[in-house]
Amino acid sequence: MMHRGALPAMGTRFEIVAGGAEPTLLRAAVEEAFEEISTCHRLWNVFSRESILSRIHAESDGHPVTIDGLTLDLLLACSRLHQQTGGSFDPIIGADLAAGDPRRDSISGVAPRDGFCGIELDAEASTVRRLDPQLRFDLGGIAKGYACDLAASILLEAGVECALIHGGTSSIVALGAPPGRAEWVIEVKGYSRKTIGLVDGALAVSSAAGGGAGGHLIDPCSGDRLDRHRAGAMVVGNSATDCDAWSTALTVAGFEGEVARQLPSTLQGYRLNNGESTDMKPQAEASVEEERWKRTVEIS
């Protein structure tokens, strides 16, 4: 029997489907996983005064702000992924852009001056300092993936080895496979093969569509809003955190050029474009069986 739970968080809906264990344990484990996701939401919700991001943004004198271990861990991941992607993934936006938040408004052409390079992260002291008080964090390109990974670790710790976790259907972690099935089958709109199979893996998609008249993604280098009709990206790997950031980076930078060539061998990137797809590393593509378990998550 599968247990299914849902939680509104991070402006979207997280869902966990878990099986392969006793129902009481499944319920408790899913509740605990949702507690972790709620913690992430409270920490990184820029719209809440309670969040650590709001505290960082409120510090206008350039002093370091002490951060908790989870936020430090996430920001270290941001730093690594910012470097890996040559800056195409950047969780920093300028104050002007933050004021006209892309999720509510449509403005263009306002580039953050330094992006993540304008952030001083001290892992020893567990502090973060903005070199420019105009810089604002926006973890929308990575937080859902991180929360899914965290939830997966809670489930595994509790002994749950069969589960599918998704945040707004754009970040997914699969543990094992559904009972009696070979893999979790994920249906992806814009992907030519329609579905992709996951076993102990993660997946994230990114798209420039959404956010009112313009797209909701900003090119960190130019500050321009990306054309909503631009090709999106799907990245498959073993960490939803990395997949999330890389799918954003590939949507921003495209599949040709240096950024795409830096994609680590542990990740698989796919272009999503009006139903057409181009596998970047077809040799690593997961096989998709004909007969599938009906539990699918549709990604649009």
């Binding site: 009481t24 344990l25 319920r27 509740e31 605990e32 489930l155 002994g159 749950v160």
Partner: peptide, 14 residues
Amino acid sequence: KTSWRQAASTAERQ
């Protein structure tokens, strides 16, 4: 709405 249970992989820990 919560079961008030904690998740654990063994009966002893549970």
